[in-house]
């Protein structure tokens, strides 16, 4: 078990190494000159050259990568080319909205999708089942921004119930956070709902066909007790995988949702950095996302231990 944990934690290193190397290479290949962007429209070639010199942008990409890697290993993610602030503090400043949004969206998705999936699984082939499936297919095929604008139009503009822009920090109190986060969470959770609903349905159908469910019925248990006590934990195994992966990817920044609702999260930070070719920030965000991804996947795998007593890691 300890060996397993050590192996898994060490496996972060190659993942992060590959991710950052690829990103470094891509930013190098992409058009645009960070020095020119930084200097502004009216800068002279000499000024641009000075900036380039100061930031050592002329050094070979490989040696720049090594320098960056060395600093990173010492906990220094560098400074933003644009604002000159430390990358780490930029990311931390944007973390709260993204984390709140990711948690809210996951909750919305779970609350809607799991009951729907279970409902469909209990009556496969019926109208209820087909309706759930249709909803799931719709959720996956309708573009998220369309749903976002529909939500804004309906609840923000026409009904005026909820704010359509911005974000409230936790210091403003939970009701205020909830008011701001609800619409983006629904938009973001919509596609997740579809995915989670389908996975729940498929997995629950499989579990409900197992011999031990028939035994539970023969015991005299009602359908609700069978689903809750005998199925839910087994359904949770594939569910945790899907939810964990999508949660991790949301933490890496949800670009479209944050843009639509003008939320100052990590996704927007990344978009801004890309527009400004702010390589240290891009690198920093991707590095943090990669680490978060690996850690969450590790947590997912550890959750299996709690859910299923047959699983043992050696």
């Amino acid at each position: 078990m300890i060996k397993y944990l050590i192996t898994r934690i060490l496996s972060v290193i190659p993942v992060v190494g590959v991710v950052t190397a690829v990103v470094f290479g891509l930013t190098y290949l992409s058009p645009g000159d960070p020095a020119a962007v930084l200097a502004g429209d009216y800068a002279s070639p000499a000024q641009i050259e000075a900036i380039r010199d100061r930031l050592q942008l002329d050094a070979p990409v490989f040696s720049r990568y090594l320098v960056w890697l060395g600093n990173t290993l010492q906990g220094d993610l560098g400074m933003s080319l644009f604002s000159g602030q430390p990358v780490l503090s930029l990311i931390l400043a944007r973390a709260e909205p993204t984390i709140t949004l990711a948690i809210a969206a996951t909750l919305v998705a779970l609350i809607v999708a799991v009951p729907l999936g279970l409902l469909a699984a209990q009556r496969p082939g019926t109208i209820a089942d087909r309706a759930v499936l249709l909803f799931c297919v719709g959720g996956m095929s309708i573009p998220a921004f369309l749903i976002g604008y529909l939500l804004i139009f309906t609840f923000g503009v026409r009904l005026g119930w909820l704010p359509v822009q911005g974000f409230a920090g936790i210091d403003k109190g939970i009701p205020e956070v909830a008011r701001h986060v609800l619409l983006p969470a629904i938009m973001l959770g919509f596609a997740q709902t579809a995915l989670i609903g389908r996975v729940t349905r498929a997995s629950a159908i499989e579990v409900l066909n197992q011999d031990f469910v028939r035994v539970a019925r023969a015991k005299g248990l009602g359908e609700t007790a069978i689903v809750v006590r005998h199925c839910l934990r087994l359904v949770a195994v594939p569910l945790v995988t899907v939810v964990g992966t999508s949660f991790a990817s949301m933490l890496g920044g949800v670009v479209i949702t944050e843009t639509v609702f003008a939320i100052p999260g990590i996704g927007r930070l990344l978009v801004e950095a890309i527009q400004r070719i702010d390589i240290p920030v891009i690198q920093g965000v991707l590095l943090v996302s990669a680490v978060v991804y690996v850690v969450i996947n590790l947590l997912v795998d550890l959750t299996y231990l709690v859910i299923d007593p047959r699983i043992k890691y050696t």
């Binding site: 011999d211 023969a218 015991k219 007593p309």
Partner: peptide, 23 residues
């Protein structure tokens, strides 16, 4: 349901799959 498992009980063929593995 009040009869099942109470007045009439049943055992099945496959002991390996008839018990819930996570309980």
């Amino acid at each position: 349901r009040r009869i099942r498992g109470n007045e009439i009980a049943m055992i099945f063929q496959e002991p390996m799959t008839s018990l819930n593995p996570v309980l």
